[in-house]
């Protein structure tokens, strides 16, 4: 398939990859997929490198039409994807034919879905990445969300359609975004700047994701956290998953499009493997937080990376390369 056309754009559909983290030293937002796990798995399913550009779909999905035969995979939150009116299985490589239409319906769980195309999306790189950064007006499709009439040029897949179709992530390995288990975070660096009572309520009481939440950050509403001295620090680095608490006492979780520096105390940072579970929460959803030991978090991360490495090996071992 050479291109896909956008019939309806959906609420916020952007081209993303794994972002530009190496440019954070120059004050550049990392951007990239909000839920990197679902994003990477979508690419692996269609035989791509895991960082190939794909679409990130938010809450209300787009209507897309395919102009050639090919393979796609849809992962992430369940936004009721349908191909030519028929519900399709997520977390599975799907064959699409010329003229097919992909539409999304109700948001069943999570809030962000990923659509990967065998061969990837072929748009220019800005600072080493195809990720859209709307505030900076660069990356992706002309630095903006998709709109009706856009054509997305696709790259060339090294695999044949038949080799990819039907591959799936085992149900036990599919993340469960309906879970209401607490999200894990590493305490610090400024936990001592909070009163004992405040720190305790942060651990024990739920917070609600407010309407002022987007790809840049989630503003939370819940128990007010009191500082021992001041909410201000000398500005320093912030990263994805950082839970910053300004003078209002209401935490903000920094997400993919966050800036690279901030001047407020940080009570903790969401673990890498739980970040997708935050990214899949939408305004109105609740979040509770649970501290986790560094060793445990890093062990979990190694386990996840081993799992992904095994899936990558499956791709590498596929012998039937398409003759091009």
């Amino acid at each position: 398939m050479e291109y896909v056309s956008v019939l309806k754009p959906g609420l916020l559909t952007t081209i993303q990859d794994l972002g530009r983290p190496m440019y954070r030293t120059l004050g550049v937002s990392a951007s990239g997929a909000m839920d990197p796990l679902s994003f990477r798995l979508a690419n692996i399913l269609v035989g791509n490198e895991e960082g190939e550009a794909a679409l990130e779909v938010t809450l209300i999905g787009p209507y897309l039409q395919f102009h050639n035969d090919g393979v796609i995979a849809i992962t992430g939150g369940n936004l009721s994807p349908k191909l030519n009116g028929q519900a399709v299985t997520m977390w599975k490589a799907l064959r699409v034919k010329q003229g097919d239409e992909l539409r999304f319906g109700n948001c069943v769980d999570g809030c962000r879905a990923y659509i990967a195309f065998a061969g990837g999306i072929d748009t220019p790189e800005i600072m080493g990445s195809q990720s859209t950064f709307i505030r900076g007006n660069y990356g992706g499709k002309d630095g903006r969300a998709l709109k009706a009439g856009d054509r997305l040029p696709l790259g060339i897949s090294f695999y044949g359609v038949d080799d990819l179709t039907g591959r799936r992530i085992r149900p036990a390995d599919v993340p469960d975004f309906t879970t209401d288990r607490p999200v894990q975070f590493i305490v610090g660096p400024h936990e001592q700047e909070f009163t004992d009572e405040s720190f305790a309520s942060f651990l024990n009481k739920p917070y609600t994701v407010s309407n002022e939440s987007d790809r840049m950050g989630y503003r939370l509403q819940g128990p007010i956290l009191e500082h021992v001295n001041s909410p201000d620090i000398i500005s320093d680095f912030i990263t994805v998953g950082t839970i910053q608490v300004p003078g209002s006492g209401q935490p903000i979780i920094h997400m993919a499009d966050c800036g690279t520096s901030g001047g407020y105390t940080k009570i903790g940072v969401i673990t890498t493997i739980d970040l997708p579970y935050v990214a899949q929460r939408k305004p109105g959803d609740n979040l509770t937080f649970q501290p986790v030991a560094m060793k445990v978090a890093q062990l979990q991360l190694r386990k996840q990376e081993r799992f992904i490495a095994e899936l990558r090996l499956v791709n590498k071992s596929m012998t039937k390369l398409r003759v091009i």
């Binding site: 590493i186 660096p189 320093d236 680095f237 990263t239 940072v269 673990t271 890498t272």
Partner: peptide
């Protein structure tokens, strides 16, 4: 040496600009 999540460490010097 302060943790900043599970993928970063802050080397923190005295609190002054």
């Amino acid at each position: 040496y302060l943790p900043m999540g599970d993928q970063a460490i802050i080397i923190q010097f005295e609190h002054v600009i």
